[in-house]
Amino acid sequence: MKLIKTLTGDRDIALLVGQVLRTGVITASAIAFVGGVLYLAKHGADSLPDYSTFTGEGKEYTTFGGIFRGLTTFRPSAVIQFGALILLATPILRVFFSLIGFAVEKDRMYVVITLLVLGIILFSMFGGLKV
């Protein structure tokens, strides 16, 4: 009986995790698509920037603040970049949902393991690794 209970619990988490992943990808690609269409409508006829030399993106595309500011003025590139942000957030959100799942199951060992993974990702996000 106990075995069956843990199995169904696992299955529920798994399905929830699958749902998070699917929704995230669909949302992100829909936003990137809209941004792409806007971008082509506005800049389609412009000549191509020189992608063969790396200059890096400016603050408007590399920080939360910058992307959101661009979003409020409907700048096409910012919309695309927002889609990229959603895409990046999807697996991170997945880890977060796994954490909740393990906590509900009272699987302490896997709560710690999941927290560790989440910690590493958050460290790379905010740990000043920009260089």
Partner: peptide, 10 residues
Amino acid sequence: RGYIDPGIAF
């Protein structure tokens, strides 16, 4: 670090 360019990414 600015590796993700919107024009290439989408």
